[in-house]
Design a protein around this nucleic acid. Sequence first.
DNA 1: TTTCGTCTGTGCGACTGCGCACGCCAAATA
DNA 2: TATTTGGCGTGCGCAGTCGCACAGACGAAA
Lengths: 254, 254
Amino acid sequence: MPSQPIKPVTNRLINSFDAHCRDRLLNMCTLIDLEFGDVIEQAGDVLGHVYFPQTGFVSMVTSLSDHKPIEMYMVGNEGMVGATLALGVETTPMQGVVQAQGSAFRADAKQFQKLLDEAPEMTKPVDRYLYIIIEQLAQTAACNSFHEVRERLARCLLMTHDRVEGDSFYLTHSFLAGMLGVRRSAVTIAAGELQSRGLIGYSRGQIRVISRSGLEEASCECYSVSQASFNHWLPQNLDTANRAQKATSRSLPK
Amino acid sequence: MPSQPIKPVTNRLINSFDAHCRDRLLNMCTLIDLEFGDVIEQAGDVLGHVYFPQTGFVSMVTSLSDHKPIEMYMVGNEGMVGATLALGVETTPMQGVVQAQGSAFRADAKQFQKLLDEAPEMTKPVDRYLYIIIEQLAQTAACNSFHEVRERLARCLLMTHDRVEGDSFYLTHSFLAGMLGVRRSAVTIAAGELQSRGLIGYSRGQIRVISRSGLEEASCECYSVSQASFNHWLPQNLDTANRAQKATSRSLPK
DNA sequence: TTTCGTCTGTGCGACTGCGCACGCCAAATA
DNA sequence: TATTTGGCGTGCGCAGTCGCACAGACGAAA
């Protein structure tokens, strides 16, 4: 809520705006629920809203004909959906699908655009975020070409873990297969390996991260490259409890 | 044109600036040669210059450890190298390598940044170009995951053809393999198929496009998607002779 | 003309992932 | 309890690509 923030703002991008812009932005935002499976943005469409996730995350995907959509990058509380508005383009190049339920600040696209025009100092963090997106896309393109399913799965699980609360989240093998652009049984095999190594546990879509450090070893370099990029360009989260705990490598069961 | 235009400007991005910006930009530019193999930009480095190719083209690539660099997108006379400066970021996320010799207008990065700051109306075309790059990256990422070598090779040849003068260019199977992120002999086989279908001819690195229409059929959808993106956002070339001729599907030998 | 380096053609076994299909099991439904 | 639904494990043959290696072919230089 604009005037009286019910929750503290955990979105790192919003937190990188200066106080004045931050307030103006929050004043035009409503805090909405992100429901699993919601399509909040259709490739090629004119943007209606922009979103700043607080919890949960959105998966940005590209579709090719005769293929299922494949994930390009994730947007959690480190970023926003609809950043291309800062390029003066009102359409969006990708589809955005909610992969983990949560909440997000939502603003009207036109109002946000107006805010960007009126407060040029606000453009800078958004521009930097666009730069991050470009880095992510390049990393993903190369990763999809070279790395194997197991490594990519580990990366995907780590990035998901970073964007949700707690160590468990709902993602079936079938969904993961879609994100990675591989078939479902390839995920089953890869996940089975990670499980038998004691890195994760799962049952009927509930995945539990047991050993982050192990996952980091099993993952391709792309995870750490991405992390480095985020941490270089974005402020650390104010609410560091959850995240800092995760960042600490550990291997606690249950 | 600045004072005395030695050549007409064929760079579509420059041509999309208004006359005043265009003049200011050209005044700070020198026309330089792009030599095959030149690395004009190193991933992660601070940008020294920006480049607007007139002829020839630059390949933007990403490297992962233990793998050869793989191409993300090309920059010919439709774009520029160093557009991320418009995001207020002075480093660059990718490496730029000259793949076809030619010439380019080169400007000092700091001067260009200053020009952007002073002439906000100039930012718009550059921002639109950044949007194109994002579209390209997403297309490439998906294409690398799903499409086969033959289709991707055809796409690559078409995009190269669009960016060079004439119907012949120098690209060995080995180079193409690097760009596509596959092994050399996979290119030999794919190229052999295209040749036996009468679409291209080649010998010792000299590739000749015989049938564009045939190549377009052999290529994945990604080529036409990319083309549509460029044509939607950029003005047509003033010097339409060469390009218009190519755009016409045909199948003339020799 | 000979030599040499580079470009291209080809073949081999191996691996990874595909597409499909079947069966098992847990949870939700009735 | 009986049935359905959805998630997961597994196996099969097959496509494509990998990694490597070697041989031929061409062009430039000596």
